[in-house]
Structure formats: structure tokens, C-alpha cells
Amino acid sequence: MNARLIGASIKRMTLARQRRFVTPHPDETLEALAARALPDAPLADAVDQIRAWNLHIFAMRKPRGLMLGSDVVFVEPPLT
């Protein structure tokens, strides 16, 4: 199927590293997710970071900050 449609166009054979993310556990709070994702950071800072890196959850959603099981939650800033 792929070869028939795009065949010789495929050149890249390795997966480049991408920004790391987690998905929320059922009923997981922001604090619990922040502690899980950034265990070495003070909790308040970790929460602040998760919020700042995930606008789609904490700025654009109604109700704001509602985490869904399908969410992609970034646990690091964009890669350079």
C-alpha cells in the first residue's frame, strides 16, 4: 500500500527525538501528574511548568484545566 502510493519517496528511516509527553491517568489531578512527570522539581514549580507548557489544557479549554484521558501533556519545553 505505502510503496504503491509513495514508493521511492520515502527517505527518512529513523525517528528523530520529539518533545516528551504523558497522558493523564484516570481522575489524576494536575498536582499528581506534575509530581509524576517532574519528580525532582518543587511541586509548585512543577505545576507552574506543566500549566505553561500545555496551553491547550490550561488556557484554551472550558472548563479551564480539565484534564482528559485523551490529552497529550508535555513534560518538557519545546526542543531546540
Binding site: 497522558t23 484516570p26 479549554r61 472550558k62 480539565l66 482528559l68 484521558g69 485523551s70 490529552d71
Partner: peptide, 22 residues
């Protein structure tokens, strides 16, 4: 859908599914 909302602005049901459901 990971984007759509209902008439009240609330996420549509599919967005409440976790990855294991998908």
C-alpha cells in the same frame, strides 16, 4: 476528535477516552 466541543463548549465524548480505549 481531540478538539471538538458541544454547544456548551464542553469537550465531545471521544475526548474523554484514554489511549487504551482507542
Amino acid at each position: 476528535s481531540f478538539v471538538d466541543v458541544d454547544e456548551n463548549g464542553r469537550p465531545v465524548p471521544s475526548r474523554f477516552a484514554d489511549f487504551s480505549e482507542l
